[in-house]
Amino acid sequence: MPATVITYIIRRLFAAVVLLIIVSMVTFGIFFLMPRLLGATPETLASRYVGRAATPDTIRDMARNLGFYDPLYEQYWRWLKGIFAGADYNYGSGIEHCPAPCLGYSFRTYQPVWPDLMDRLPVTLSLAVGAATLWLLGGITIGTISAVYRGSVFDRLAMGVSLAGVSLPIFFTGLLSLSIFSYGLGWTAVGGSYTDIADDPGQWAYNLILPWITLALLFSAQYARLTRAGMLETMNEDFIRTARAKGLAEPAVVVRHGLRGALTPILTIFGLDVGLLLGGAVLTESAFSLPGLGKYAIEGIVNYDLPKVMGVTILAAFFVVIANLVVDLLYAVVDPRVRAK
């Protein structure tokens, strides 16, 4: 790897770390500062960790044990340190060590958040990766065909359907497809089914196929339109004329020269969509009752379980940052001109 690429990666990683710290500060601020501003005292916060029958004294002890009386920056520092070095928590039943990376304990279940996240990550990853593969394949294929046969029946139909795909919300398409294909026709798994890929890949795919399609439908529509627009532009480039002048067959002209040239903007949007994808996964997981991160986050929000929400947010931010870094590096793979800069 040339030195310029390494400097580039180092600079981007440095920026990513700074960004993650800012995201964590903002998230921390929202979840720990906002309640204070709204009038909550350290005692009200601590009361969530003790039973209903607690006396004011036990609540005060708990608040002290959890460090709620310390200044906010110390709490933030402790939280940050927990991620890298682990932390010790005391809920009154003795000191419990939470190993790094420690994202705190759930208010409700008293379980450490990190192992929970790791349990649920495969579900969300399966959903996201599968859906992304589907929509990239589907969107790019449909978009390319639409561009090549511009103005044809296929083109108009595809663009019409894709408009609908963009407009319909997931919980509508999700529930509709669930009621038709799994409860009505019995072709697909019912909601809430999930099998680990390591246990049975076939079952894993069978259970996820409907959520994949539902989530992919939302995005593939956009990618079909994007690919079509990009292809229409690229197919008018001079280098396409050159490829034809060489005597290259039309399918090769379209794929090797046209599609390859139209790929860059698709990559850009894909990088941005990885963030949106998590949002989409939250809704899809709810609609299909999948035990993933999205459902976990919703539980956290509904139960006012702040550490859970913090954990999902930080993890999501981490993935978005990494995805963008990967996309930026992919640019250099796709477009050799980027390498020179």
Binding site: D238, T242, A245, G247, A249, R260
Partner: peptide, 28 residues
């Protein structure tokens, strides 16, 4: 058209005005 395609590049070839835009930027 396919017969014409097979003549293109083989028996008749063409060079264009702007060599920067006439070559694909992503291939050597």
């Amino acid at each position: 058209p396919d017969r014409v395609r097979k003549l293109r590049g083989k028996r008749m070839a063409m060079i264009f005005q702007d060599p920067l835009s006439a070559m694909h930027p992503f291939y050597t």
